[in-house]
């Protein structure tokens, strides 16, 4: 037993190096605290929050961002009925070919993936000062910090001029360290968007959300924090729709293994009883 514990310690020591990149970005600003219903071993998505988040996504973000891995039919997993989802899909016109092979536009169906706002990446970049808005299907999994980072990004827009002198000094220091120039200073122009959590602190996306940007159908008060948390909740679901399955199965598998391990231990002790 003692050796087993030692062996596990060795394994954990070997795992330690990866812990570095599991933490959030290297922003000088502390991350705003948020609690997610889907974190922890028994976590599940909050259907109401995800539905509100979908409303935000549909009314604001789809103007620029695609969600190419999610189909309209998937929305039923958030608790919307099939008819509701059909109606949502039908609001979009998607390209297709008719029976004569001529390109046409038809209303989207349940099986279609979310409509892309731009024909291709070049068009997307051209419409956004040269920086194509990324597809958001996996954004929560694709950034260190996960949902906490996405949320922080959305609430992290600030006026650089209003930062404390201390924070400004820290930013300058980071720029100096990165460039190797001891006199370098962090600068933002009027046209650039300062964001406390985006790597480099300057992002091509202007603040997409503000209080009351969306009027929630369920009457929830649309503060910036509420909107950001809800749309992040929706994007977390889009990144991992099978999260609930995974955790539910996991609890059962671990309980089963725990019992079996206990049995194995008892049998092993019994067998070895006369040999120790």
């Amino acid at each position: 037993m003692r050796k087993l514990i030692l062996a596990s310690a060795v394994a954990l020591a070997a795992l330690a190096p990866v812990a570095g990149h599991a933490a959030g970005g290297d922003s000088i600003f502390p991350m705003p605290p948020v609690k997610w219903s889907f974190s922890g071993p028994f976590g599940t998505y909050d259907r109401a929050a995800a539905q509100r988040g979908f409303q935000v996504f549909k009314e604001v973000c789809t103007a620029c961002h695609s969600l190419s891995l999610v189909a309209y039919r998937n929305l039923t997993e958030l608790g919307l009925t099939e008819n509701q989802v059909k109606a949502i899909a039908a609001e979009y016109q998607v390209p297709d070919l008719n029976d004569e092979g001529q390109p046409i536009e038809r209303p989207a169906r349940l099986s279609d993936r979310f409509k892309k706002p731009f024909a291709n990446d070049a068009a997307a970049a051209a419409a956004n000062q040269g920086k194509a808005p990324p597809d958001l299907s996996l954004i929560v999994k694709a950034r260190a910090g996960g949902a906490d980072y996405t949320y922080a990004l959305l609430v992290g827009y600030a006026d650089y001029a209003k930062l404390s002198a201390e924070d400004k000094a820290k930013l300058d220091k980071q720029v100096q360290k990165a460039s190797g120039d001891p006199k370098a200073k962090f600068e933002v122009t009027k046209d650039e968007n300062f964001n406390k959590y985006f790597p480099g602190y300057k992002i091509s996306m202007a603040a997409p959300l503000a209080a009351d940007k969306v009027t929630y159908v369920d009457g929830t008060k649309a503060t910036l924090e509420q909107l950001s948390a809800d749309v992040t909740h929706f994007l977390a679901w889009a990144s991992e729709p099978k999260l609930e399955d995974r955790k539910r199965t996991g609890v059962r598998v671990l309980l089963f293994l725990l019992v079996l391990t206990g049995l194995m231990y008892a049998v092993k002790r019994q067998v070895w009883a006369d040999k120790h």
Partner: peptide, 30 residues
């Protein structure tokens, strides 16, 4: 066989804890 069986079970427990509760911990978000 019984001693290995027990060892395998303990290892699988740790393994499954990662598979079901932190599947991307050892990977890179990029």
């Amino acid at each position: 066989t019984m001693k290995d069986g027990f060892g395998v079970m303990v290892f699988l427990l740790v393994f499954c804890a990662f598979v079901f509760f932190a599947p991307d911990y050892l990977g890179h978000p990029d």
